[in-house]
């Protein structure tokens, strides 16, 4: 189990995941892959909160509640983003950020 594993290693994993997400957000041009990078970023923050809560303050539940709220906000954000993406696709037949250059037609 996790005894013997210091919190630093959890933080290292989540840091790598976070910056891989940042890299993907900067590099990708497709809207859906950018959304996937955002999910990576949010997920790594969740790991951070839970590891801090369990290893440093095991008597409390604050980090866990924050992770629950992060997951709820991520679900909301994903559904709205996908609705917007589908709307853009319906009008422009394209979801490439560099080819979407008008907001009203």
């Amino acid at each position: 189990m996790f005894e013997g594993i210091p919190i630093t290693w959890f933080l290292v994993v989540s840091t790598i995941m976070f910056f891989v997400g940042i890299f993907g957000f900067l590099v990708r041009k497709n809207l859906i892959t950018m959304l996937m990078s955002t999910e990576l970023i949010l997920n790594s923050v969740g790991i951070n909160f839970v590891a801090f809560n369990r290893i440093l303050y095991p008597g409390q539940l604050e980090g866990m509640f924050f992770t629950i709220f992060i997951i709820a906000v991520a679900a909301a954000e994903a559904s709205i983003a996908i609705a917007i993406i589908l709307n853009i696709y319906r009008r422009m037949k394209n979801i490439d950020v560099e080819k979407i250059n008008e907001m009203k037609y």
Binding site: V13, M17, V20, G21, R28, L40
Partner: peptide, 8 residues
């Protein structure tokens, strides 16, 4: 780590 790199 491996799969998040592959994802992007």
């Amino acid at each position: 780590i491996v799969c998040s790199i592959l994802t992007v």
